[in-house]
Nucleic acid binder design. Sequence first.
DNA 1: CAAAGTCATCGAAACGTTTCGATTCAATCG
DNA 2: CGATTGAATCGAAACGTTTCGATGACTTTG
Lengths: 333, 333
Amino acid sequence: MSAVRSVSIKDVARRAGVAISTASLALNGGARVAPETLRRIQDAAMELNYVGNRMARRLKRGRSGVLGVTIFPGFNECHFELAFLIQEEARKHGYATRFFFEDLTRQNDLVQFFGEVNGQIDGLVSYSGPALEQYRQLATMGIPCVFQDSVEAKVDFVAIDFRAGARLATKYLLERGFRKIATFYTGKEVRGELPQERLQGYIDAMTAAGLEYRNLIVEFDGNPFVHEDLYELGRRILQTAPEAVFIRSDFAALTLLRVICDHGLRPGKDIAVVGFDNIKMGRYSNPSLTTIDYDQQWRARKMVEILLARIDGAVLPVQHCVSKCRLVKRESA
Amino acid sequence: MSAVRSVSIKDVARRAGVAISTASLALNGGARVAPETLRRIQDAAMELNYVGNRMARRLKRGRSGVLGVTIFPGFNECHFELAFLIQEEARKHGYATRFFFEDLTRQNDLVQFFGEVNGQIDGLVSYSGPALEQYRQLATMGIPCVFQDSVEAKVDFVAIDFRAGARLATKYLLERGFRKIATFYTGKEVRGELPQERLQGYIDAMTAAGLEYRNLIVEFDGNPFVHEDLYELGRRILQTAPEAVFIRSDFAALTLLRVICDHGLRPGKDIAVVGFDNIKMGRYSNPSLTTIDYDQQWRARKMVEILLARIDGAVLPVQHCVSKCRLVKRESA
DNA sequence: CAAAGTCATCGAAACGTTTCGATTCAATCG
DNA sequence: CGATTGAATCGAAACGTTTCGATGACTTTG
């Protein structure tokens, strides 16, 4: 079964009675082509249903016209939403998007990933994973990177102001009169967020209120995208006997609601909960989640902007963007 | 800014003191190459960090080595999970995967999508959307398709036995002694499932039990992936004053739980609920969801199998696979 | 009217592979 | 020993584009 030989620019040229190069010229903007010839070539292309062979074009141009996006396979709504928005944004600029469901936690995976990526994409949006250093290799391959999370000073990123968000959430709980506010932090950072950014925001607020918090912080080393681990985490948080909990993702918050119920308590009444991310389900959980929201669309736009600038070889200083956070009040606090 | 010229097979050949063609031969299996030469070439490739230019290879071979997967941008866990599993499966066979977040409901999108896809993928896994007929065009372009949902007799698909699943769910509710079991169906089918398959399973069970169901079926024309629409649907379902509800997705079921609460009733106690899909959140909702499970991994494997066979030009009859369903008992029923 | 300048078009090279037919060389056979 | 075989290697074409320098025709200028 041989592949269907599709119509090439050669066919168009022949039909229009013109050289291949002229056809190419005409089809790419048609700057220096006589109007009459241009029309003839366009007609020919139309009639033959010419679409052009991307592989060949890219081979020649040395650019793929594709942006890569790594998606952490935690099946968390936020990951996908951002990916989708990036696709939309990239499309506006004539770029296609290619997604990689990759758990880039081991160096091995990263090596394989680089191989897979090679020559296929012009730029990459990624969460950083633990092996940021490795990404330097991509730069070597001439592939610009923008990170979804704040990582370190030397690379471009469009992050979320986790610290301010956490401060906001904690402050709100304080205003509502709670004093024993628990939270947790993860030692190993799965998504590469600067260690303890959210924790720091919590500490900011607690300190400003002159409150003791040492015994209210639970250390967690499970997978923050796995319900089982989060359930266990919830139990340990409840052992601190808190009046309220600031928890670093809605995903975790939803699980926490369940833990609280299982302990015979009423979330939102006996224990207040504030999450982070404003996932859609949070509006319809019981109780609905008070949470911290940020602008994913803005982030997507920024990321694509930066990436395209880098691809075009613009000389820019390192770009650090941070999305503002805002409190969304609902029933859980 | 010129792209970094990466090391080509030419460099490897030169370094190994051998012709380009020999190097190519050696690097692709090395069938007819002397062991000594083979080693030398491999070493050279190693040292130079040769990775090969996919675009060139594909241009030459006329195959991309990529499977496409369309993902309905409803941000529903099931969609992503299947996509991820397909990626894993494809990788085992040396195929890469390319994902498209596309809402293929309008013909316009489909046309653009086909353009985007052209020459980039060797095969496609897709949900069918309403424009199945259009996919014939892909066949014309030499791109085999497998569908995620049962559509019609003439195309390959690997679906779910919705009807049996629905029957299973309804039967279970009947066994528990419920008589007034409500459900809903959507007139316009977003994901292209054969209209009313699940409804039919429900009817099977109700009929077998000799029960009247006419007034227990609510018609829904909202978007089944949007909480707002589903909330409204839930309210209308409750107007039938049911003892139990069989609802066609866990996503919808979670929202329904909330509706029931808002009506001052206790889901799982005052009204039983059975969902469909066995999403992870269902284990940690309150109450946890009784639901219908099916084997996504098996589906992914089948899909890739079929696609690769078609790509290899195997002459097969139309393939129709259907995943069995199984009941998962939890608190909501 | 010849020289210079424009404009439209063309031919050919190049991108990095794979693949096919040709070539070389040594070993085997009659 | 010359002819035949087979293995190992090579050279060149081809895939479908883009792009650069060249070509010719026609117009303007001095």
